[in-house]
């Protein structure tokens, strides 16, 4: 629909062979901090350079506080 696509929280993939892997995967996939305030999130520049950005944004005001390339 628009230039950027929202992907949500940047979560680290847990270690699949760790003893508590099921619990960690559950937490990584399903639980969210969902803060009211600064939020770290991934955006995909779908209709643009197709790069991934890591954006810091205030969820109360939509102010973008910073952005960097996600790969870095």
């Amino acid at each position: 629909m628009s230039e950027f696509v929202y992907y949500g929280d940047p979560v680290q993939r847990p270690d699949p062979v760790a003893a508590d892997a099921p619990r960690r995967f559950y937490e990584a996939v399903y639980l969210r901090d969902n803060p009211a305030g600064p939020h770290e999130e991934l955006w995909y520049h779908a209709n643009g350079c197709r790069g991934w950005l890591r954006v810091s944004r205030d969820t109360r005001t939509h102010d973008v506080l910073g952005a960097s390339f996600a790969g870095k």
Binding site: M1, S2, E3, N47, G48, C49
Partner: peptide
Amino acid sequence: ATTIVSHIG
């Protein structure tokens, strides 16, 4: 700018 115009990249 690389963006969209009426849904078109």
